[in-house]
Simulated scan of single mutants.
Amino acid sequence: MIDINEIKIRLAKREDAVAVSDLLNRLGLNLPNKNEIEKINTHWNRLWDNNPYYQQFDEDVLYGWVMEHNNTIVGFFGCFPRVYYYNKKIFPIAIASQWGVEKEYRTFTHLLCDIFFNHHPISTKLVTTAIKPTGRIFEKYNGKRVPDPDLETVYMVPINLLKLITHKYKEKLDNNSILKFAFKAANFLLPWKLQYKLIAKNKRLKEVDVNTLSVDFDKFWERYLQSSKGLIASRSSNILKWYYTGGSRGLTKKVFIYMSETDEIIGYASIIDEPVIENKELKRYKIIDLLAENEKVKQKIIKELVRYSCEQKMDILEFHLPGTIKKNDIPVFTLKRNVPQFPVFFQTSDTEMNKILQEKNVWQILPFDGDTCLG
C-alpha cells in the first residue's frame, strides 16, 4: 500500500519533459514518447518556452506540477498561459492541459488538484477539452460550465452524405446487400454534392500563409477587439503565428482572410484537417476560428468554406464549440450531434470575475480557445 507521505508534489521542470511526455503517451494521450526526444522538445518549446504570453509578461515559465513517488514521475497536471482580453483589457488565463495520473496513484490526484486550483499565480483557469473526470474536478473546486449549452453541440455539413450514412450504419449495410445497393443508387440518382459544387466561388476569401500576416491583420484585430465586449482570446498576428505553426499531432491547419472591396481585411477564419477517429477514411475539416466585421461577412465566409471543403474532396465540415456561430449562420443543410461530455469549464479565485463569468454573453468561445486545436 502506498503511503501518502511518500508522495511528492512539485513544480515541473524543463528536464521533466521526456518523463512527462512518456507518461502521458502511455496513458493514451496523443503525445511523443520517450524515444521521440526531438518531438518532445519541439512540443514543450512551442507550448511553453516560446509561448508569446511570456513576451508580454516577464514571468518564469510555469509548466505545471508533477506527482512523484520514489523519484519517479507518476502524475502531471500541465497548464500554460494564454492572453485574453476582458472588456478590451488584458486578462491572463491559465489553460489546463495534458493531465494524467498512473492508475494506482489516482487516489492522490487531489494533491495535484489542490496546488493547481489554490496556488496557481493566474486566478482564472479554463479547460476546453474536458472529459468527465476533468469536469468533475473543476466543479469540486467551485468551477463551472461555461454558461452556453450550445457548446456541447456539433454542427455538421454532410458533404458526402452517402459516406456518412455508410459509416453510421456500416454493420447493417454490410449485412444487407439490397439496402447497400439502394443507397448507392440513390447517391447516383440524387447527386448530393452538386449543391455544394454550385456555390459560386467567393474570391474575397483568400488562403494565406500565417507567417505573412502583418500590420494589416493587426489593424483588423484591433478594430474587432475595440468593438467587442466580454472575454476574448487575443488574435494578434504574433499569437496566430504561434498557434498555427507546429503541433504534436501533425495536422494541417489553414488560415484565410476576407477582403473588402477596398482591400481591407474585414474577416478571418481557419480550419483543421482532422480525420474522424473512428474511421480514418472519413475526411473532415473542422472550423477552428472565425472573426468577421459583421454578421453578413461571417455568413459569406462560412458559405465559401463549405464550397472550399467540397472542392478539397472533404466528406464533412464540422463546427465544434460554436459559441459565436449559430445554425442559422450555416447556409446549407446541417446535421447536429452532441458531444459525450460538456467540454468547457472555468474556475476562478476572483470573486467578482466568478459572478461575471457566469453570464453567457461574456463568452466568445470557439475551438481557437484553450488547447482544443493547438496540438
Score class of each variant (00 low, 15 high):
residue 4 I to F: 08
residue 8 K to E: 02
residue 10 R to K: 10
residue 17 A to P: 00
residue 20 V to A: 04
residue 20 V to T: 13
residue 23 L to R: 02
residue 46 R to T: 09
residue 47 L to Y: 11
residue 51 N to E: 15
residue 53 Y to Q: 01
residue 55 Q to A: 04
residue 63 Y to S: 00
residue 64 G to D: 04
residue 71 N to I: 10
residue 71 N to Y: 13
residue 77 F to E: 07
residue 81 P to E: 02
residue 83 V to N: 06
residue 84 Y to M: 06
residue 90 I to H: 03
residue 98 Q to P: 00
residue 106 R to E: 15
residue 110 H to K: 05
residue 112 L to F: 01
residue 114 D to R: 11
residue 122 I to C: 05
residue 136 R to N: 14
residue 137 I to V: 12
residue 140 K to E: 13
residue 143 G to N: 06
residue 148 D to A: 02
residue 150 D to S: 15
residue 160 N to D: 10
residue 178 I to T: 06
residue 181 F to S: 04
residue 191 P to G: 08
residue 194 L to T: 15
residue 197 K to N: 08
residue 198 L to E: 10
residue 202 N to R: 05
residue 207 E to S: 08
residue 215 V to N: 06
residue 219 K to R: 14
residue 223 R to C: 00
residue 231 L to W: 10
residue 232 I to K: 09
residue 237 S to V: 11
residue 243 Y to D: 04
residue 252 T to R: 15
residue 266 I to E: 12
residue 267 G to N: 13
residue 268 Y to G: 07
residue 271 I to E: 13
residue 280 K to F: 07
residue 281 E to K: 15
residue 287 I to Y: 06
residue 287 I to V: 15
residue 289 D to H: 09
residue 294 N to T: 12
residue 295 E to K: 05
residue 303 K to V: 03
residue 305 L to D: 12
residue 310 C to S: 10
residue 311 E to P: 00
residue 313 K to Q: 04
residue 314 M to P: 01
residue 316 I to Y: 01
residue 316 I to V: 14
residue 319 F to W: 05
residue 319 F to R: 06
residue 323 G to S: 02
residue 324 T to C: 02
residue 325 I to D: 04
residue 331 P to M: 09
residue 332 V to T: 06
residue 335 L to N: 03
residue 336 K to N: 07
residue 339 V to D: 04
residue 343 P to V: 13
residue 343 P to A: 12
residue 350 D to Y: 10
residue 356 I to N: 05
residue 358 Q to G: 14
residue 358 Q to H: 13
residue 361 N to V: 07
residue 367 P to T: 14
residue 370 G to S: 14
residue 371 D to K: 14
